[in-house]
């Protein structure tokens, strides 16, 4: 999983049906010191409680997403599966 910070939300009314009712959040990958590292991207919030500024766990593997969502053909690869309280390093 990636450690990411939630930067905000994406609103897209016109989209494939599979995305209906799912929250689209813009996430910024972080390094172990929680500094931004790499390109931001868009993930679906499966915790339904991740918000702007939160550090979250993002799973980036489509097979796992499809199993978790019980949607065998979902064209989704990034899913927020946890909201992080603390990261202790070293």
């Amino acid at each position: 999983m990636n450690l990411c910070r939630v930067l905000g939300t994406v609103v897209a009314t016109e989209k494939l049906p599979i995305f209906e009712g799912r929250k689209l959040l813009v996430v910024q990958p972080l390094d172990e010191l929680q500094q931004p590292q790499g390109k931001s991207y868009v993930a679906i919030d499966h915790t339904s409680c991740a918000g702007k500024g939160d550090v979250v766990l993002v799973m980036n593997e489509g097979g796992g997403v499809r199993m978790t969502l019980k949607e065998p053909a979902a064209p989704i690869r990034s899913l927020i599966v946890g909201v992080v309280d603390a990261v202790d390093v070293g």
């Binding site: 905000g8 609103v11 897209a12 016109e14 995305f19 064209p75």
Partner: peptide
């Protein structure tokens, strides 16, 4: 690569 949505707004 497939386009799956039209974005109305990116609120960051």
């Amino acid at each position: 690569a497939a386009i799956v949505g039209l974005v109305d707004e990116v609120d960051v």
